[in-house]
Nucleic acid binder design. Structure first.
Lengths: 343, 343
DNA sequence: AGTTAGCACTCGAAGCATGAGAGTGCTAAC
DNA sequence: GTTAGCACTCTCATGCTTCGAGTGCTAACT
């Protein structure tokens, strides 16, 4: 049962009005505002039909109509035209990501900030666990009597480091050799796969080296341990405080709590995710506490693994703007990442 | 004009009641609750006196009394007994700071989390700029054809790194020598003081080295640039959402906004600060937006510089618990930092 | 003199009625 | 198929009343 052109127009008008005002829109007000050439009564009839089909709903008998989640879904699937950020905005992002930024942390911070600022919703970026990255290089560098730094470089150029203690007798040269042992054994493997058993052969070394090897293994272990699974960065959480749907403190708290425990958000974003923009509206989300919100997200490739990013806001969301922004940003990150990195 | 013992008791009772209920406390209710051996009428008389002296105030004529900020101040100065965290709680902190944690970031995160969890207020930790740390060691480590990592170690063992490009002809040995040049020139200086002019002499090197020197200087510059002045970490911001004084969305937004732009909090905490616990109540704070809140803070030493940490909550705060916790944590951090580090 | 009981008074919060305004659905006419 | 007209519904704001907690004051008590 598809919609007539006029019904689609009315649906769109209602969505636009409702998204910007957060008030139910009535037939009379709508005709007046949009200067339609049909009468309020006609609109009323169409509205009644749209409601019966499930695209609209009425908060109370005597209120106007608001789009149902199904209505938003229809709009998003069949009618929406994404609005990509203006050139000025894109420039802003390019500028924020200037070439001197090497720290992955900084990049994530800035992208998140951009997303939330442009869309006015909260943004999230999920960074795949470092464990999935590939091992590129390991070095052990003495820094002073009895201390050295284990330096691990991954395929996409992320650098991990950790101090270890070493026998005072070890020379820099020997440390270098130990490092090379690791390199030969591990290069190209995923960090995740670094298991002690794989390195048993390294045990057959002379004793002083064995100590270093042991310490280095420990260091790698803790480095991996402490890089929790996927890292979630949320920016602009406060944006949702503006939305009238969260004037209720309890709802607000629930949402902000989800944001604060970043673990939760990780589970909310669907796992299979392409670089296409995906949208989850209200109850389409799995987690109960978030059924009142919508997600607009996309994936980005980082060294073979998929990261996720997007924005989260009320169901009454400017999907067109959010989708356009997320899409643009995801593309820009992909470009950036393929330009950088070590390979 | 000092208070009689009975007045002090009444003041304390009012403070305790008001802090836990957020309601004005009336004479009758107070006598009943605390099982006082004096009558409500007597309490009323004393209350009237306390109000005249400025230690109490009345929201409306027919409401009970609440402590004024001056009342809290009096309590904090002359009557308060700090409640230090229980052994179990302290253990929790020690556990969270287990020796395997080397990352300064992790330490800060965990301490913040502890503070906010134990006190139920928002916690902040201000980490002095890395620029004030002293230069301990610099090394340039080749990682692949044409690329190397500049590694800077500070006096307290913080490790900074940044990738640079190098002429493909450079050998590891030569890089090491360049590194040594830097070490001779810089060891013991503050990072802040690394000025190009100081390093002019390094310019007289052969050309290929000059390039590396130049790149390394750039790397140091950006490392310093990107480590913004003082870093502020706020944890448990959501705790304040529970406080009834922030049921007003506007107030809530203001406070959360201050939290989100960490720059602001830096200016709020007094500059001269010992390791003693300091308390700022309500209007004693300089910044307007924060005159409705209280701060409990202390300093901690990190490699010669002073960091700051504390909690921030409503004026109606459990100062006793907050002060005890902040004091304990500050001492524990000091111990931790003096045990660690490179010197 | 200090303490207490009693009482009139004040003020905010909660509950209820009322009216205005916006919107709907239906019917009948165009 | 579209529109005008009209009775009806429901929310929201406003004002009024009542209720309860608390105060301040006076007079009596110890």
């Amino acid at each position: 049962m598809s919609l007539t052109e006029r019904q689609r127009q009315i649906l769109e008008s209602i969505i636009k009005d409702y998204v910007s005002t957060a008030e139910p829109v009535g037939s009379r007000a709508m005709v007046r505002k949009h200067g339609l050439s049909i009468s309020a009564a006609t609109v009323r009839n169409e509205m009644a039909d749209l409601e019966e089909m499930g695209y609209l709903e009425q908060p109370h008998t005597s209120a106007g109509r608001i789009p149902s989640e199904q209505g938003f879904r229809y709009y998003v699937d069949y009618m929406m035209e994404s609005v990509i950020p203006s050139d000025a905005e894109i420039d802003l992002l390019h500028q924020a990501l200037d070439d001197r930024i090497q720290e992955w942390n900084d990049v994530v911070q800035r992208v998140g900030h951009f997303l939330s600022q442009v869309t006015n919703y909260a943004s999230f970026i999920i960074v795949p666990s470092i464990k999935l990255s590939q091992f590129h290089d390991l070095q052990i560098i003495p820094i002073q009597e009895g201390q050295a730094i284990v330096l691990v470089v991954t395929d996409i150029g992320i650098i991990l480091h950790r101090r270890i203690t070493i026998p005072t007798s070890m020379t820099a040269d020997e440390l270098k050799k130990v490092g090379n042992l690791f390199n030969r054994a591990l290069r190209g493997k995923r960090l995740l796969e670094v298991k002690r058993s794989d390195l048993m052969m390294l045990r057959d070394e002379i004793k002083s080296r064995r100590q270093v090897i042991e310490k280095t293994l420990e260091a790698i272990d803790t480095l991996l341990d402490h890089s929790q699974d996927d890292r979630v960065v949320i920016t602009g959480a406060l944006n949702i405080i503006k939305e009238p749907e969260f004037k209720d403190l309890d709802k607000l708290r629930k949402v902000l709590t989800i944001f604060e425990e970043d673990g939760q958000l990780k589970d909310i974003v669907p796992d299979q995710i392409g670089e296409q923009v995906g949208i989850r509206i209200g109850k389409e989300n799995k987690l109960d506490d978030i059924k009142g919100m919508s997600l607009v997200f996309a994936g980005y490739k980082t060294g073979g693994e998929m990261g996720k990013m997007g924005v989260i806001g009320p169901v009454r969301m400017e999907y067109w703007k959010a989708a356009g922004t997320v899409e643009s940003v995801s593309r820009i990150i992909d470009e950036l990442l393929s330009k950088r990195g070590l390979k």
